[in-house]
Design a protein around this nucleic acid. Structure first.
Length: 681
DNA sequence: AAGTCGTCGCTTTTT
DNA sequence: GCGACGACTT
């Protein structure tokens, strides 16, 4: 293992006076960084110490506090930008936070890491991949990819007879990974008399093996593998523990065990023996060590509110925030209770719902903005009736001068958009569904992306098999199987087996087709090799741009051509979608000069629904309550509030025309979407 | 190998 | 109510 000095770590910080974190650093911030803050917000910005918990009720200005706190740390020279790691919930929130910090400081603050858990982990893993035997161009599998693999495994093992479905296996694997239980840990606890457990272990094993062989990680791996990396290689961990002196985590109530463990690893002190090793490798630690010769753990700030925990289904553990003071003894707690976004009527209604939660610490949100307009309740006779009400109300708001883009409609599940969309189309209301079936989930886009993935990561068998016969080139399942078994028998990768297609004894047509595809992918990969100068600099100089590679692949595979000449009328739209993807890669190339294909693929893998939201769109936004978290609108509609609306599975379909639907809207005041836990019974 | 028809089961919520 | 998948046909 080699330790390198982080390339984007400015060296100046070592010389700076007071660079070491110091709890008694004196008056913290310039006045402009605390101006206009209430006393509690100011306290949260100015507090200096190892651990700070900011309990921030909905709409209490926590983003403001976080950005001011970061700016204050930098402004007071208590941290260099590169020593800051801030974790946000979406990439969009990260970009906004960076802009706001830079606006406060009046200068660019490059080197700050502000990102989601997943983005930060990918960045670390790509850099340290070789330590854990992974290619730095590893693929990130989304849930559809996971399901495809699990489907194949379940079929091969006949596991469906025991009731396993791809979805059930995926959920179970995800749960285990979020609890940091890897296959071998699970294997040790398996009850060998239970055929279900034995079968699941086999599924888990195969799944793990296939991802490893393909050099691929799923979403949950991104977090857990980073934790394993840090635990197995203290010297690697020390690089990051040394670097990040201030770690700030937003939405802490929605962290799961793996994310919690990651934070614990990152805030761990570096022991003197490891400090000595860092020194030997030329990693500078001067000014960071304390009297005992160790580097103290980073200071940690978490922001959250247990009333706003909505991700328990993906392993979020509310104990992380409830037990923060026990985990980090001596932690300071600041409560933000003044709400700046809603009127009292809205707060009271929200409170009435939340107060039904058990185990709840009472919080009293208040506002100085007065009662405001009352919330409107409406009970419809059907989903369509409800949608019509919403549409009429939106029209009324619009006539009263509210812009469409300041209006949002929320629901629990994506399936609930249907009635709304029908009525909105009929009423000619401009709207946009945020999330749901995304652009990148369309089959033709996944095909084009699979070409890029296959070029970036030649080990990725899933990607290659997806495009093997797309567009149709006469390679059917039989041919596919014979390539796979040839690879297996000769210890080759699928890709290598394709290159050696001559020896497979297939028909001339199939052989030519396979070799043609292998050649296309190899040539595209060759375009990505940087020039000698680029290699010498360690940059991407001389490598083809993403859009050039994609254009080459589309041309060589006839992907768009095939769609254009197809008889299926829908294929014209599909061709346009692929062209749209090409346009997006051009935008990417322009906005990210020097970025690689892997950077593009990573970005696409990690976009959240809310990241796609275009603030200037001029349309009403439709989205799930989960997607809405952290967003803000002038008027919002909550639809489908009736009991049991989303659990049709266990109930017969609703008798026609008698579905009770409830919508409620708030307007003429700024309402902030902030969903709350609603545990039934 | 590709096209057509009929059956099953599925959806909370997401990085 | 829709889409994915398998069996069947050409």
């Amino acid at each position: 293992m080699t330790l390198i000095l982080d390339p984007d770590d400015p060296t100046g910080w070592r010389e700076a006076p007071g660079a070491a974190p110091d709890a008694h650093a004196g008056p913290a911030a310039s006045a402009h960084l605390t101006a206009g803050l209430n006393p509690q917000q100011r306290e949260a910005v100015e507090y200096r110490g190892p651990a700070l918990l900011i309990v921030a009720g909905a709409g209490s200005g926590k983003t403001r506090v976080l950005t001011h706190r970061i700016a204050s740390l930098i402004d007071a020279r208590e941290a260099w930008p590169s020593q800051i790691l801030a974790i946000t919930f979406t990439n969009k929130a990260a970009a906004e936070m960076r802009e706001r910090v830079e606006a406060l400081l009046g200068e660019a603050a490059g080197g700050m890491w502000i990102s989601t858990f997943h983005s930060a982990c990918v960045r670390i893993l790509r850099r340290e991949a070789e330590s854990i035997g992974l290619s730095s161009t590893f693929t990130i599998y989304d849930s559809a990819d996971q399901r495809t693999i699990l489907k194949r495994i379940i079929k091969e093992l006949d596991a469906d007879t025991l009731g396993f479905t791809p979805a059930s296996a995926q959920a179970k694997i995800s749960k285990l990974k979020n609890e940091l239980a890897d296959v071998e840990t699970y294997a040790r606890n398996v009850n060998s008399n239970d055929p279900n457990e034995v079968m699941f272990l086999e599924i888990f094993r195969q799944y793990t093996r296939r991802l490893r062989d393909a050099s691929a990680l799923d979403f949950d791996d991104l977090i857990s593998e980073t934790v394993y990396l840090f635990r197995a290689f203290p010297k690697v961990a020390a690089l990051y523990q040394r670097r990040f002196r201030h770690i700030l985590v937003d939405e802490y109530q929605d962290t799961n065990h793996a994310q919690y463990s990651l934070i614990r690893e990152l805030t761990r002190a570096v022991e003197p023996d490891v400090v000595a090793e860092l020194n030997e490798h030329g990693v500078l630690v001067r000014g960071l060590t304390d009297a005992s010769g160790s580097i103290p753990g980073a200071s940690l700030t978490v922001v959250g509110d247990s009333d706003q925990s909505i991700y328990a289904f993906r392993g979020a553990d509310i104990r992380n925030i409830v037990e923060f003071e026990r985990d980090f003894p001596g932690a300071k707690v600041v409560l933000l209770e003044q709400n700046y976004r809603s009127t009292q009527n809205i707060l009271s209604a929200a409170n009435a719902v939340i107060s039904n939660n058990f185990d709840r610490k009472d919080k009293k949100l208040w506002t100085a903005d007065g009662d405001g307009e009352k919330i409107t309740g409406y009970t419809g006779y059907s989903a369509h009736d409800e949608a019509q009400f919403v549409a009429d109300e939106i029209e009324a708001l619009h006539r009263a001068g509210v812009a469409y883009r300041d209006i949002a409609v929320f629901y629990r599940t994506n399936a609930q958009t249907r009635a709304l969309e029908e009525i909105f189309v009929r009423s000619a209301l401009p709207y946009r569904v945020v999330g749901g079936t995304k652009f990148y989930e369309r089959a033709e886009i996944k095909d084009a992306m699979a070409y890029l993935v296959a070029v970036a990561n030649p080990l990725d068998e899933l990607a290659i098999r997806r495009i093997l016969n797309t567009p149709k080139r006469g390679i059917g399942p039989a041919t596919e199987t014979s390539i796979a078994s040839f690879a297996e028998a000769n210890d080759l990768t699928f890709r290598q087996a394709m290159r050696a297609a001559d020896g497979l004894g297939l028909g001339p047509k199939a052989t030519t087709a396979i070799q043609g595809l292998a050649k296309l992918l190899d040539e595209a990969a060759a375009m990505l090799v940087p020039s000698e100068q680029g290699i010498a600099e360690g940059t991407n100089a001389g490598a083809a741009k993403v859009s050039d590679v994609l254009a080459f692949l589309i041309e060589g595979s006839k992907l768009v051509e095939t769609l254009r000449t197809s008889r299926d009328p829908q294929d014209e739209t599909r061709a346009e979608n692929v062209e749209e993807l090409l346009a997006q890669t051009k935008d990417f190339d322009r906005e990210n000069p020097g970025a690689s294909l892997v950077d593009f693929l990573t970005q696409v893998s990690l976009v959240a629904a809310a990241d796609e939201l275009d603030d200037a769109s001029g349309t009403v936004s439709l989205m799930t309550l989960h997607t809405a978290k952290g967003l803000e609108y002038h008027a919002v509609f909550l639809t489908g509030l009736e009991e049991d609306c989303c659990r049709t599975r266990c109930r017969p379909p609703n008798p026609a025309g008698r579905l009770r639907s409830a919508a409620c809207s708030t307007s003429a005041s700024r309402a902030r979407a902030s969903a709350s836990t609603c545990r039934s019974r």
